[in-house]
């Protein structure tokens, strides 16, 4: 595993609330892994922590409320090693990802797009 230094992940209040709600509902801890490719690509997958075996070429972008956020090193490089912000948006979770509750799912935004 590669550790980004400094961390390149932040989260909106809505994302932190969704994590708290998910923790209350399902118990346990969670991990996020940025996905790429078709269909449900470009979204972070929210999984029970440890569900995906983290490899030597995964980058830990940072930790959001005790939840590690990873991206494949090649994807990170192709995207220009961006800073990302975890947020929630309406819609169903894709792939094997957990939803963010109430018909919402987790998304990542480029940090420049987040209102400050």
């Amino acid at each position: 595993m590669i550790v980004a230094d400094p961390a390149r992940i932040a989260a909106t209040d809505a994302a932190r609330e969704a994590i708290a709600t998910l923790r209350a509902a399902r118990g346990g801890s969670f991990m996020f892994v940025q996905s790429g490719g078709c269909c449900g690509g470009s979204v972070p997958q929210c999984l029970p922590d440890g569900e995906l075996i983290v490899g030597d070429h995964d980058v830990l972008l940072g930790v959001v409320d005790d939840c590690p956020f990873y991206i494949d090193d090649r994807l990170d490089e192709a995207w220009g090693r961006p800073s990302l912000v975890l947020d929630v948006a309406p819609g169903h979770a894709e792939g094997f990802s957990l939803g963010a509750g109430d018909g919402t799912r987790f998304v990542t935004l480029p940090s420049a797009d987040v209102p400050t």
Partner: peptide
Amino acid sequence: FTGETVTGRLIMQ
């Protein structure tokens, strides 16, 4: 499976 990369990794795992 047809879909995105993280689920693809999970499937292989």
